[in-house]
Design a protein around this nucleic acid. Structure first.
Lengths: 154, 154
DNA sequence: CGGTATTGTTCAGTGCACCGACGATTACGA
DNA sequence: TCGTAATCGTCGGTGCACTGAACAATACCG
């Protein structure tokens, strides 16, 4: 009888929440462009000409994953990738016109989807929802960083 | 200029939350057994002899995914799979002694990890955290179901 | 009893997400 | 300046997650 109640496990809830979101996204936003892909488009609308690594940092994806996402967006013609003449290690990323159009279109649909997704919560509860999740996620990310040392680095 | 603030997008937050959990799990619980795998072990501790589909239902995984997870657990010798003599379509699943031991060990570590993960929240906030996420996830799942019809099925 | 529908599992395909290792390029320090 | 270190991207490997299609076994109905 050592079984545990998973509904009190935050990891399990997080997974279910993301699955639920995935389904809703697929039906209400797009079957072609995924939520992480939209995040990349959005980052490049905010800051055109970023390199891959920085985009990954902005949207929270590691180098391997961001490489795949970007390659898919490139294949769809939503984004251009050019070597930085100043620094031959990096690629500069920039949305195409098609990419801009897609971002605009999905922005509208995403807003609608978020409303439906959050409909079960009252307005003040939605604020709490964001705040609580953000605090937990931020703290856990902080645990993994080289972490601001409490004393000066040796 | 059309860029959006992703920190107000529940889907993006859900993804980040899960990633944070993944990292913490890897360092504090196990590098071999993943959180979904633990969920399956847990379901079989609660109800030994379930079939694959039902286990998937219990932990929230579709048939394809649950098949892979179970095959991995089988390869590790944590679980046995036998055809149901009553119904040749299904496989009955049951933990091995090794599987039971593993579940017990991970239960302890998981509890510790959950404490660390939720540490940024006060006790009453943790209760809210569970409640809000569960409500959103449940509602979104409900949207996808054949859904209890409002009138009798024709 | 026989044919059709339903159910449990598998398979192929796509995509996200991580790690560790590698090659190329640039930056820094002796 | 020359060699070592850091940085950016790629590649291979593992694992989760979904869809749609195929297959086998069972259930149901005429």
């Amino acid at each position: 009888m050592g079984a545990v109640d998973l509904t009190t496990h935050p990891g399990h809830l997080a997974r279910r929440l993301q699955q639920a979101h995935y389904l809703l996204w697929n039906t209400m936003v797009s079957e072609e462009i995924t939520s992480p892909q939209f995040a990349v488009l959005n980052a490049l609308v905010a800051e055109p000409g970023l390199d891959q690594r920085t985009v990954g940092e902005r949207v929270g994806l590691d180098r391997s994953t961001i490489a795949e996402v970007i390659s898919r967006l490139g294949r769809r013609g939503l984004l251009d990738k050019v070597r930085d003449p100043q620094d031959g290690r990096r690629f500069l990323l920039r949305l195409t016109d098609e990419g801009l159009r897609t971002h605009k279109k999905l922005t509208v649909r995403t807003a609608r989807m978020n409303q439906v997704f959050l409909a079960p919560l009252a307005t003040d509860e939605q604020v709490l929802f964001f705040d609580l999740i953000r605090r937990v996620a931020d703290a856990a990310e902080g645990l993994r960083n080289p972490s601001e040392p409490l004393v000066a680095p040796s």
